[in-house]
Write a protein that binds this DNA or RNA. Structure first.
Lengths: 197, 197
DNA sequence: TAGAAAATTAACTTGACAGTTAAATAAAGA
DNA sequence: TCTTTATTTAACTGTCAAGTTAATTTTCTA
């Protein structure tokens, strides 16, 4: 990659990061290309120089969010620790991340209403991979007798749902820190998997 | 209420119902006053004759959705059946309802970005009442020794989150019916509350 | 350092949709 | 039936933000 290409890539990333930030503040119905540009001290035109249209920019934002969370959970999966610890850490990591990015994840809710088929393909593939890691952990736990569960998919979706819902009720200035809440949730979710604990 | 007032109330309700329907199809970023009107074979002007603005119409849609679900769960609460059965039925009822209305519930996600303070007051009060009923059930279960849980709020939010997430993954043409999925989820959620079952 | 290529800008067009209004139509009562 | 009031409509206006473009500035390189 040439120096020029690197510079372009950097600029693109800078814009994507800002898009994510604005998204997390204003949500999908608040974000405008003009605002993203203004916050980067550039004009809309520049943003359009790097991204074909708004859809494409949001698409890349979405991908970055997904890839980051995927990376985190993959790191945990590779550790040499008991399976319930792995799942516990994954849950905590996910909740902390989602509270960080807040409504950046809004796009996850109705991607069909925003992205085109090709983009959706990639997004769903990433999602599946992410879900798959949770499935693997659950299955591993079942196989070694730690978890007692029959319907992996249902259980995994209960876990994902309760984690993603946290943005709806967690009060940033409440008694408990993000991590504390995350730990509490993890306890109950793991309990669902190991009923005799 | 005079005949005339009744007619107005009826028309308003008709519009609200259609708004909910369009909402459930297109979501918040798809719904237009024009489309709602067109589907009712009227013009936008008529809709504006009954509702001050879009915000107010969506507000009433939201209220109707919330009140309906509240009513359902209150019916269940009044039954003379064991507490775990009550919670089980509430979970199933909620999931079935949410799969029916789909993205009508999108407005629940970021109401701050849509409604004004006064409207939010009412919405949050309804939400709290709804959550409160689940809390009551959980507490009742704890008191009589059926459930073993310390943090009611966290557990209740895990339940709400996993239920509300169902729209994200349930395939309408999949193997299991809505009710079957709802029942499966209820089993695991109840398990979380009664670890020795 | 001159000239070409890349990056940025300001000023524009366009389209969509919320909301308004004055006029037309329908309904109801006297 | 006539008149008044309620309802509906078509044709507007206004605004906001997406996306475009031609001209300008910056950066690179021969």
């Amino acid at each position: 990659m040439s120096l020029r290409e690197k510079k372009v890539a950097e600029k693109k990333e800078e814009i994507i990061r800002m898009a994510i930030r604005v998204l997390s503040e204003k949500g999908y119905n608040g974000i405008t290309m003009e605002e993203i540009a203004a916050k980067l001290l550039m004009t809309k035109g520049t943003v359009y120089y790097y991204f074909k249209d708004k859809q494409e920019l949001l698409y890349h934002s979405q991908i970055m969010l997904l890839e980051r969370s995927l990376w985190k959970v993959q790191q945990i999966q590779q550790k040499q620790i008991p399976i319930d610890k792995k799942l516990n850490q994954s849950i905590i990591s996910h909740i902390e991340y989602i509270l960080e990015e807040r409504s950046g994840f809004e796009l996850m809710l109705k991607p069909e209403q925003i992205f085109n088929t090709k983009q959706l393909d990639v997004i769903f593939k990433l999602r599946d991979t992410y879900a798959g890691i949770f499935d693997q952990m659950i299955i591993e736990g079942i196989d070694e007798g730690t978890f007692h569960v029959t319907d992996v998919k249902v259980v995994r979706n209960i876990i994902l749902g309760s984690m993603n819902w946290v943005t709806q009720w967690y009060a940033e200035n409440g008694k408990k820190s993000r991590t504390e809440i995350a730990e509490d949730i993890a306890i109950y979710l793991l309990r669902m998997l190991s009923p005799n604990k």
